[in-house]
Nucleic acid binder design. Structure first.
Lengths: 197, 197
DNA sequence: GTCTATATGTGGATAGAC
DNA sequence: GTCTATCCACATATAGAC
C-alpha cells in the first residue's frame, strides 16, 4: 500500500526533527533515528535511500512551511511589511535546527536535490513579489532588506537564543528601511475606503 | 627548547587552516593534519591536548587577526565608519572557514575556552568603542548596526561567495544608518584644520 | 619526540535470512 | 518489510618501544 509507506516516511522525518533538536543536525545518526521510530537501521533504507535523502526531505518540509508562512501575509504597506517581517523572524528563531538546515550550509556533504532547491527558489520569488507589491521594486533594495532581516535573525539566534533583544529592533528596522525606500504607512488605495479630509 | 615548540605549534595551526579550507572545518581529521605537517597522528598530541584544542587555537588566532583589523580603523566619522565596515566585510568574506569558526557555532561539540572567548569579548568591546567614538551611543543602534553588517556578510557568503552583490550595498547601508542616527560626514573637529566659509 | 601498534568508538550502508 | 550480521571506512586518543 502506497499510503502506509508515505505515513511511515512522515513519522521518520518527524522523529528526525525531534532527534536533531536534541543532539544537533550533524551528529544525527541513522542508527539512533531508527531506534527512535522503533526500527533497526537497515529498515530505514526501505524508506530513504540515504542519510542525505532524509536531510533533503526535512529541507523540503521546511521550505513548504515557510511558503505557508509567507503566504499568510500579503498587505502591501509598511504595516504589512512589519507583520510579515515579524512572522519571518519568528519562523527562523522558533526552530534553530530548521534554520540551520534551510539557511546555513554547514552540513558536510549535503546539498538539496534540484526538486527541493526549487522550493527554496519559489520562496525567494514569493518574498520578492511581496516587496514589489509593497512598492519596493529595486533589486538592490530587496538585497538590502533581506540582509537586514537575516542579520537581525542571526544576531538574535547566536547571541541570545531565548531573548528578544534583536526582535525588538524589527519595527525600527522596518521604519528605517521604509523611510529610505519611500514606503508609506498605508497602501495607495485605489478604492474609496478613505474619508475625505 | 620552548621556542621550537611554539614554532611547531604555529606550523600545525597554519596547516590546519590550509586543510580546513580544502576539506571543510568539521571533517578536518587529526590524521590528515599530521600527514600535512609530516608527522603521524599521535605526535600531534605532544603539541595539542585534543582536536578541540586545535580548533581553539585557530579561534584565538582569528580573533587576534580581527583585533588588528579593527584597530587599523579609528576615524570617528561617516567616512570612517564606511572604511571600517568595508574592512570588516572583507575580513569575513575573504576567509569563509575562519568566519564559520569565529561567528557561526556549527562545529559539533566545540566551544572556545574562556581564554579564547575573552578575545572575542574584547573585539566586541573594540567595535562598541568605535561606534561610541563616532557618536553612536545607543546600545539599540549598536545592535541594529551589527545586525545589518553581519547580515550583508552572510548574504554575500551564502549566495554569491565570489561576487560583490552585497558588498556593493555597504555604502548605502552606511548612509541609511548614518542618516538614521545623525552621524555626520565629518567628525566634529575641535581643531582648526577647516577653512572658513 | 616520534614512532608503531592498537584500543575503542563511531558512522553509513549492504547481503541475505526469515 | 524487517531483521541479524557484517563490511568498511574513518575517527580520536593512548600505551609503550625506540
Amino acid at each position: 500500500m502506497e499510503r502506509r509507506r508515505a505515513e511511515t516516511r512522515g513519522e521518520i522525518i518527524s522523529a528526525a526533527w525531534e532527534l536533531a533538536r536534541e543532539t544537533g543536525l550533524v551528529p544525527l545518526s541513522v542508527r539512533r533515528l531508527a531506534q527512535q521510530v522503533g526500527m533497526r537501521a537497515p529498515s530505514l533504507y526501505s524508506y530513504f535511500a540515504s542519510k542525505d535523502a532524509i536531510y533533503d526531505a526535512m529541507f523540503a518540509e521546511g521550505q513548504i512551511q515557510l511558503a505557508r508562512t509567507i503566504d499568510a501575509y500579503r498587505q502591501p504597506s509598511r504595516a504589512g511589511l512589519r507583520a510579515a517581517t515579524h512572522a519571518f523572524f519568528d519562523f527562523c528563531v522558533s526552530d534553530p535546527v530548521r534554520y540551520q538546515l534551510m539557511f546555513q550550509r554547514t552540513i558536510p556533504g549535503f546539498e538539496p536535490t534540484p526538486e527541493s532547491y526549487a522550493l527554496a527558489i519559489d520562496n525567494l520569488e514569493r518574498i520578492r513579489a511581496q516587496l514589489v507589491s509593497a512598492g519596493i521594486t529595486s533589486s538592490q533594495h530587496h538585497d538590502l532588506w533581506t540582509a537586514i532581516v537575516t542579520g537581525l535573525v542571526a544576531q538574535q539566534m547566536s547571541n541570545e537564543p531565548e531573548g528578544r533583544r534583536w526582535r525588538d529592533l524589527v519595527d525600527e528596522a522596518v521604519d528605517v528601511f521604509s523611510d529610505h525606500t519611500g514606503l508609506v504607512d498605508e497602501p495607495e488605495s485605489t478604492s474609496d475606503n478613505k474619508e475625505p479630509t
